[in-house]
C-alpha cells in the first residue's frame, strides 16, 4: 500500500495491533478513540462476539489533517487474538506499515505471547515481508496488575524482545502507555519514509 503519495499529497499509515487473545488490543483502540476529537476520527468499526471478543477486526481511522502540506491519515487495526482466526489475522496484516505487538504481562500468558509473536513472523513471511524490515514496537500491557502475577518490562524484554525494538509498559484500560506506544510506532513508520525514496 502507498505510504506517502507525493502526487496526491497524502500520507496513509496502516498500523496493526497484534498479540494473543485478551492482551488488550481493542482496549488500546478504544482508549485512543476516546481521546481523538470527533472531527478527527472516523467511525470505529468493531466486529465483536457477544462476549466482546474481537471476531473479525477493529478499525479506527484517524485524520491528522494537513501536515507539511500532506493530508495525513492513520488507520489503526486490531487482529482477533484467538488462535483459530489466523486467516483473518493474515488478511488484516496485509499492507501494514507498522505493527504494535500487544503482549499480556501476566506470567502465565508468556507462552501465548511467544506463540503469537511466532505467528506474526510467519504471517508476515506469507506476505513476503521479513519481520526485521517491518517497523515494530512492543507493548507490555496489564502492568497495573499485582506484581506477583506479572512479569516486569525488563523480564518481558528478555523473553520476547530479542530484536530490541522500542517497548512500552502499559495499562491500556486506564490509558497509561497507550499514546506512548502509538507515538513509538508512528515514529518508526514515518522515519522509514525518510530513509528510502518514497513509494507512490
Amino acid at each position: 500500500m502507498s505510504l506517502v503519495n507525493f502526487t496526491t499529497r497524502e500520507i496513509t499509515c496502516k498500523i496493526v495491533y497484534y498479540g494473543p487473545g485478551r492482551s488488550g488490543k481493542t482496549t488500546n483502540l478504544h482508549y485512543i478513540y476516546g481521546r481523538v476529537p470527533e472531527t478527527r476520527r472516523g467511525r470505529m468499526v468493531s466486529l465483536a462476539t457477544q462476549t466482546d471478543r474481537t471476531l473479525f477486526f477493529d478499525f479506527l481511522p484517524i485524520d491528522l489533517g494537513q501536515i507539511s502540506g500532506f493530508s495525513t491519515r492513520f488507520q489503526l487495526y486490531t487482529v482477533p487474538g484467538q488462535v483459530y482466526y489466523n486467516a483473518t489475522r493474515r488478511l488484516v496484516l496485509q499492507g501494514a506499515d507498522g505493527v504494535v505487538f500487544v503482549g499480556d504481562s501476566q506470567a502465565r500468558q508468556l507462552d501465548e505471547n511467544i506463540e503469537s509473536l511466532q505467528n506474526l513472523q510467519s504471517n508476515l513471511l506469507e506476505h513476503g515481508v521479513d519481520v526485521r524490515t517491518m517497523p515494530l514496537v512492543m507493548q507490555y500491557n496489564k502492568q497495573d496488575l499485582p506484581p506477583e502475577l506479572i512479569l516486569t518490562p525488563a523480564d518481558l524484554d528478555d523473553a520476547l524482545n530479542f530484536r530490541s525494538v522500542p517497548s512500552f509498559p502499559a495499562d491500556a484500560l486506564h490509558g497509561k502507555g497507550v499514546f506512548e506506544t502509538l507515538k513509538g510506532i508512528s515514529e518508526l513508520v514515518l522515519k522509514k519514509l525518510a530513509a528510502g525514496s518514497p513509494t507512490v
Partner: peptide, 21 residues
Amino acid sequence: PDEFSQFLTDVTTTVGKAVEA
C-alpha cells in the same frame, strides 16, 4: 493532558522531518 494534541505535535515533527528530508 491532551494526549491527542501532544501526539499530533509529535507526528507533525516527524512528518516534517521526513517530508523535508
